[in-house]
Each structure stands twice: as C-alpha cells, then as structure tokens.
Computed example of a mutant assay.
Amino acid sequence: MPITKQYLKSKPECKITFCFPSQEADKVEVAGDFNKWKPVKLKKYKNGNFKGQLNLPVDKEYEFKYVVDGSWKNEPEADKYKWNDFAGSENSVVVV
C-alpha cells in the first residue's frame, strides 16, 4: 500500500498516511524535509505494514525517505524522485 492523501476541508492541509510493507523489519521510520530529517517511528501492524500519519501544508513538495532498521529506503510509488547531492542518491517526493 503506497502513500495515501486525504485533503482536509477545514484547513489547507493534507493528511498523509505513510505505509511501508515489511514482514522482516523490526523498526521503520519516516524522515524528510517536513520534519527536518528527524526520523519519526511508524507503527507496526500484524499484517506486516508500518504506518504513520502527518498533516502537511498543501501546494508543496516534500522530500522524504524511510529508515528501515537503520537503512535509508525510497518509497517505490512516490509521486516523483529528486536527486540529493549530500546523500549521493535520490529522495522520494510527495506532492500535496
């Protein structure tokens, strides 16, 4: 299950649900420019999915990655990808 977006009617924000499927992982976090790249832990469910929600202002693009047991991973179904010279790799991008 990829990222889902729910635009809020009451304010210019979008509720983003990050979902990373992994039966093997012990810990999955999400980090991006929306939280100054400080990883936020996602909750593990019995079906193997790790999920978490964040409300983000609309009309912006946000770079992010998952941290899976200490390794940085991209979202396979991101809206797009952007090269990051600092990391020497691409970051996932969510457009809201």
Rank of each mutant, 00 (worst) to 15 (best):
G48H: 09
E29T: 08
G32M: 11
N49L: 08
S10M: 12
S92Q: 03
K80D: 11
K65G: 03
E24F: 13
A25F: 13
G88K: 07
V96C: 12
A87T: 00
A87L: 10
K11Q: 11
D26T: 07
E63T: 07
L56F: 01
P21S: 15
S10T: 09
G52N: 05
Y7I: 04
F64S: 02
V58L: 15
V30W: 08
K51E: 04
G48P: 00
V96K: 07
P2Q: 11
G32K: 07
K46R: 06
K11D: 10
L42S: 02
D79C: 04
Q6I: 09
V68Y: 10
K65D: 03
G52C: 05
P12F: 08
V96N: 05
V95N: 11
V94F: 02
K38S: 12
Q53C: 09
K27S: 15
E63N: 09
Y81K: 06
N84L: 08
N49Y: 06
K41H: 08
Y62H: 01
L56R: 04
G48E: 00
G32N: 07
N49E: 00
V40E: 09
S89H: 08
A87W: 01
G52D: 11
Y81W: 05
V28R: 14
K65R: 08
F18R: 03
F18S: 09
F86Q: 13
A78L: 02
D26V: 10
L8S: 01
F20T: 06
P2G: 12
N55K: 10
K44A: 15
D59P: 02
F34S: 05
A78D: 03
T17S: 11
K27M: 15
N47M: 11
W72S: 11
K60S: 10
K36W: 07
Q23S: 13
K36L: 15
Q23P: 00
K15D: 01
A78Q: 03
K73D: 03
T4S: 15
E61M: 12
A25W: 12
E13G: 03
N84E: 09
K5D: 12
K36H: 12
K41G: 02
G32Y: 04
N55Y: 05
E75T: 03
K27Y: 12
P57I: 02
D59R: 14
K73G: 02
F20Q: 09
E61S: 13
N91R: 08
N55I: 04
K51C: 07
L42W: 02
W72Y: 08
S92M: 04
W72H: 04
V95K: 15
D26Y: 13
L56V: 00
